Simulated scan of single mutants.
Amino acid sequence: MKTSTSSQTNSVSKLYCSIFGHQYDVTKLVTKHVKEYTCKCCKKQLTTNSNGNLTELTPTFQEINSILEYIHSKRMSRLKQKMYTTTAA
């Protein structure tokens, strides 16, 4: 019984989004330019691609975003450490 209720809710959400459009919220900041979005109603997930356009968040894009986030965080911590070292000297 729960599956029919959740399926009805999901179809109503999809219908709402098809009529009024998606309402995306930023769910994850990968870098300054790359973000992950989720629709409030139908829970559709998108991300920005290399051209800056929104594309569906597939497992491949999830892996790319996690690696990109790791590289970005390492770079930012290294730059922050370099700034503190330069300021202290």
Rank of each mutant, 00 (worst) to 15 (best):
M1P: 05
M1D: 04
T3W: 11
Q8A: 15
Q8M: 14
N10T: 11
S11Y: 13
K14Q: 13
L15N: 10
F20A: 06
F20R: 09
D25M: 14
L29W: 05
V30F: 00
K32C: 03
H33Y: 12
H33P: 02
H33D: 02
H33S: 06
E36I: 01
Y37L: 09
Y37K: 08
T38G: 06
T38C: 09
T38P: 07
K40P: 06
C41Q: 06
C42M: 03
C42I: 03
C42T: 03
K43T: 15
K44M: 08
K44R: 10
Q45P: 05
Q45N: 04
Q45G: 01
L46S: 04
L46T: 05
L46E: 03
T48G: 02
S50W: 11
S50C: 09
N51S: 13
G52Y: 02
G52K: 01
T55D: 10
T55W: 10
E56S: 15
T58A: 11
P59K: 11
P59E: 05
P59S: 09
Q62D: 08
E63T: 08
S66D: 14
I67D: 07
L68S: 07
E69C: 12
Y70A: 11
I71S: 05
H72G: 01
H72P: 02
K74M: 01
R75V: 02
R75W: 05
M76T: 06
M76K: 07
R78D: 00
R78C: 01
L79N: 00
K80M: 09
K80Q: 07
K82S: 12
M83N: 12
M83K: 14
Y84E: 01
Y84V: 03
T85G: 06
T85E: 08
T86N: 08
T86I: 14
T87W: 00
